[in-house]
Design a protein around this nucleic acid. Structure first.
Lengths: 137, 137
DNA sequence: CCGTAAAATTGTAATCATTACAATTTTATT
DNA sequence: AATAAAATTGTAATGATTACAATTTTACGG
């Protein structure tokens, strides 16, 4: 379940973050195509619609959305950075064959460990790798 | 609990991977300083002892050790790649204040999710971020 | 509706980690 | 010691991300 564009733009208003034309396009894209895109994918797609859109603006916007807590970085693979609209906590599974990243629900908040007693946990990420059911056929 | 250098060099022999002088130094370093170092840290330290050691060799060696299943990549932060000698499965906690990466024990093998039924899970990573107990004082 | 200041955006150049690759050195083996 | 295979080196290339100054857009008071 992904948040709607309306919900997200409202969140930004609450935080006094201006939703300019370009930022709106990026946000709308992330809602419409929740495939954990890279910057290149976002740029490649949006550039066709808005030829004057620059990559720098995409980076800027993503950083702003991350700081606002609406977007999360996915580092499931060390040579590619991906971005995800934040919803309920969930894990990410990357298929090493087709490259697709799947969401899976897992109650990360329940997880902890003795060694972290007295630590303040702010953020939890869970990354799995393997082969998805389609690619196993 | 980290594996000993002896154990690891024996693992390599089993897999028919030659343990050259340089590779031995890198492996020995990873065992001696299990602080999840970056390539720069490894290079900075080893270069003082072996002035002719090149960064490329460190990259090469790490890739070989990763393929052999002795070293694991840590992507807890998206702008730095770190390396860890593989032992029992465990999670990684990064303190956003002091930058230290702590290991914590967690039985990752137990974790799964409905959505991954029929998927083949090869690898699991668990990354936490927050503030460690020292930095909270 | 217009003018103005602040914020956003752009494009180019810089940075930094990583990789490619050809030349050289080291290693194992006979 | 000779040889071939493997490892290592150093330089240059790549590719993602960032810095920054110039330009454009936006919000808003008059």
């Amino acid at each position: 379940m992904k948040h709607s564009y309306e919900f997200l733009s409202n969140e930004l208003k609450k935080k006094n973050i201006r939703l300019s034309n370009r930022r709106a396009k990026v946000l709308e894209y992330l809602c419409r195509i929740p495939n954990h895109p890279t910057v290149d994918q976002i740029y490649g797609d949006l550039h066709q619609v808005i030829p004057t859109l620059s990559k720098t603006t995409i980076y800027n916007t993503l950083h702003i959305l991350i700081q606002a807590g609406l977007v999360r970085v996915i580092n499931v693979e060390d040579n590619e950075t991906r971005y995800d609209i934040i919803t309920a906590p969930h894990g990410h599974f990357k298929c090493v064959n087709c490259g697709t990243i799947f969401d899976f629900s897992i109650d990360l908040a329940l997880l902890t460990a003795e060694e972290l007693n007295g630590f303040k946990i702010i953020d939890r990420d869970m990354y799995f790798k393997g082969v998805c059911s389609k690619c196993l056929l």
